[in-house]
Design a protein around this nucleic acid. Structure first.
Lengths: 219, 219
DNA sequence: GTCTATACTGAGATAGAC
DNA sequence: GTCTATCTCAGTATAGAC
């Protein structure tokens, strides 16, 4: 629905300026705290231009997020492609799958500091479960399948819950400004943070499915 | 600062009605989507009464959350007291510590369905990191200390990060309506959900600290 | 097809009378 | 303690200029 390329209509300029301003301000202040009037003032456009190009405020957020998230999800897919190609018919390493999900985030964070804040805001602030779902559903499904292949003995239901635990931990880890004592040092190093997370999650995924839990009917 | 007991001023009625309405509506619709005017209509009070009793909208939220969260945090502390008393001078089991943090949530959820939704809203929606911090800082610190005792070989910095991973996974697990395929069955069973989480997190905490990561300077 | 000017409704907040 | 009146600012919608 949203034209993603530039070729048509020569890129109005207005549209891009709105997106840039919105991205910066939302990353800084959050979605709710950022008014359309702030955005259009920074972009030096009229407020009606926002509604012309995007519709409601939430739709503008959707466009902002899409512009940043789509390349990251693409990078994740490519990374996972490589991992799967290298594994061939053999087993998949859990760590490799998790890295293909987590490290593209860190790479992007390096070259665009706003990105992490924006993602954190998106996942942390209300920003519509529907919006999150829309942008991540396909990616999550693809990774769930890969994880299922890496841990074939794990019942599907249990795997799905662990995927959710992973998503929650990741969202929190990304948005976190580490304020608890003893972790001031590596606050900005998103790559280290994500590698810590890989270690933690890999162990969690490997944990034996608790036989005492009632789910013997699955898989 | 906020008087937490009823004895003084005979409990105005107005104040309690506002809290009840706010709690219900916020749990149903979220914080941002719930207007003060909705709340005062349901409570049948004047809008200025809200500002008289609580101040700003955010302060009202603070009072609502406090009323629900304080008992849960107290239950957590008591549970952990028992676990530590039983361990005596011996080692602490990671699972026991995690259960004392996670299972009181499930217990409360059973008898008050709104509670989980409210907590999920609080952690999931923007609801001020400052607010979250205020209500959970003491609890988190106490549990970090217990976990540190249960996993003494883990460097402090690594432990703190894993605590954050735990918080993120927990918040997400609590607020989650499981929509991914294969998990429709046990959606409402918060206790099972939390026990799954204990298994997952315990394995994550037990994972060896990755020696390749640069943090040899700590502890 | 793009954008500006302007108006509308509802939000949170506050001052001051009772 | 409570309520009325009012203020400012938010998101949204429309009419019409280029």
């Amino acid at each position: 629905m949203i034209e993603s390329d530039v070729s048509i209509s020569r890129m109005s300029g207005t549209r891009e300026r709105i997106l840039d301003s919105a991205e910066r301000l939302i990353a800084e202040q959050g979605y709710a705290a950022t008014s359309l009037r702030q955005i259009i003032a920074a972009a030096k456009v009229n407020i009606a231009a926002v509604h012309y190009h995007f519709g409601a405020k939430e739709d503008l957020l959707d466009a902002v997020v899409l512009r940043k998230v789509a390349p990251v999800n693409a990078a994740r897919m490519e990374w996972l492609d490589r991992v799967e190609a290298q594994a061939g018919a053999g087993p998949l390493r859990i760590e490799d799958v998790l890295e293909s999900f987590l490290l593209p985030t860190a790479d992007t964070a390096q070259q665009n500091p706003d990105f992490v804040r924006l993602m954190g805001r998106m996942l942390t602030e209300g920003m519509m479960p529907s919006l999150v779902e829309k942008h991540f559903q396909a990616t999550v499904m693809r990774f769930s399948a890969a994880l299922s292949r890496a841990i074939p003995y794990l019942p599907r239901q249990e795997l799905m819950w662990r995927v959710h635990f992973m998503i929650g931990a990741t969202a929190h880890a990304m948005s976190m400004k580490p304020i608890l004592s003893g972790m001031e040092g590596d606050a900005p190093d998103m790559n280290l943070r994500m590698r810590r997370l890989v270690t933690f999650l890999a162990a969690g995924f490997r944990a034996p499915s608790n036989a005492a839990l009632p789910e013997s009917k699955e898989k």
